[in-house]
């Protein structure tokens, strides 16, 4: 393996593995909470942090951690308090982060938009020794939170109100998750880039859940897929000179497609097995009386509505679930 002979490639592959683990590990909670796009927003905000690093002459990884964590906390606060115009506030944060980044990079003495490009789409050749140390530290933090607190974070993301009533510190956990997502973005930005980091948080999870039934299995499978695509995408970028972010994300989407295609027959078989477990009559056996031939088309359109299933019976379609109010009250003494 001549590819391992290069120092920069060793560093890049190590970073790739860490990204492959951490991005889906955080992403699964965001997907569960239907906030799949949050990573994208943090990525935009992190750009301002990167530019701030250039401006102040510090390692951009650390300034990006700081600024994106602030941005993620701001988003979480908007989610709490902002009700009606929350989406506008988020949009402001996204665009502000992007514009701030471009503004600051051009203000800094040795910066240009070209510097930003390596952060936007990732670059394996520029991962420095200092970057790798920072990435290892940050990845350890992300794994400790996302794997160590997985039961608690699962409960919060699955049913927040219930989690609050169990007495879990839901606000603290939500803030912790937001900060962890921000840290993950900065871990991943050197490899996949800020514009595509969100894809690596979401796509492996989406792929894994096509074939899994439980949360723990989905988490493990998503991490497995994440590591495979980041490693192979990075190697591909070594031989064919393309930004690693692009090859990694295209690969991840390909994996999603393959699993989806394979999972469909699997799901059908599972459904058939469930059918066998719950035996019921093959088809309706009740003979409906009065099978008269109607005179006009309108006569068949409405069979007696007397059976009266309420319009709100929904998927449950159980008894006692009409759309109206159903309580009989005799106001008595």
């Amino acid at each position: 393996m001549d590819i391992l002979g290069y120092d920069f490639m060793q560093r890049a592959l190590l970073a790739a593995v860490l990204v492959g683990i951490t991005a889906p590990a955080v992403g699964i909670y965001l997907v569960q909470r239907r906030q799949a796009i949050m990573g994208d927003g943090i990525g935009h905000v992190a750009l301002t942090g990167v530019a701030l690093g250039f401006l102040t002459g510090t390692n951009p990884v650390w300034t990006a951690v700081l600024v994106s964590a602030l941005g993620a906390v701001a988003m979480e606060l908007i989610r709490w308090y902002g009700k009606a115009r929350g989406d506008l506030a988020l949009a402001m944060l996204f665009y502000g982060g992007m514009a701030g980044g471009v503004l600051l990079i051009n203000l800094s003495p040795n910066g240009s938009n070209a510097n930003l490009t390596t952060y936007l789409f990732g670059s394996i050749t520029t991962v420095s020794q200092g970057d790798v140390q920072a990435i290892c530290l940050l990845a350890a933090f992300v794994m400790a939170i996302t794997l160590g607190l997985r039961r608690q974070l699962f409960a919060v993301c699955q049913d927040e109100e219930f989690a609050r009533v169990t007495g879990l510190p839901v606000r603290v956990l939500n803030l912790l998750l937001a900060i962890t997502a921000a840290v993950t973005v900065t871990v991943a930005m050197r490899v996949v880039g800020l514009l595509l980091v969100s894809a690596l948080m979401v796509v492996p999870v989406a792929a894994a859940q096509q074939a899994t039934r439980g949360f723990a299995m989905t988490l493990a499978a998503a991490i497995g897929i994440g590591v495979i695509v980041t490693l192979s995408g990075t190697v591909y970028s070594f031989y064919v000179d393309v930004p690693p972010g692009a090859s990694i994300v295209v690969l991840a989407i390909a994996v999603f497609g393959v699993i989806t295609a394979l999972a469909a027959p699997l799901a059908r078989r599972r459904a058939r097995r469930a059918e066998l477990l719950a035996p019921r009559e093959e088809r309706c056996t009740l003979e409906v009386p009065g099978s008269r031939s109607p005179a006009g088309a309108t006569a068949v359109s409405a069979p007696s509505s007397g059976s009266g299933f309420g319009s709100g019976s929904g998927s449950g379609s159980g008894p006692g679930f009409g759309s109206g109010d159903d309580v009989e009250v005799r106001p008595s003494g």
Partner: peptide, 14 residues
């Protein structure tokens, strides 16, 4: 929910 969860996982949350 966005991500599948088993019956045991949901009950364990309680």
């Amino acid at each position: 929910s966005g991500v599948p969860a088993t019956v045991r996982e949901v009950v364990s949350a309680g």
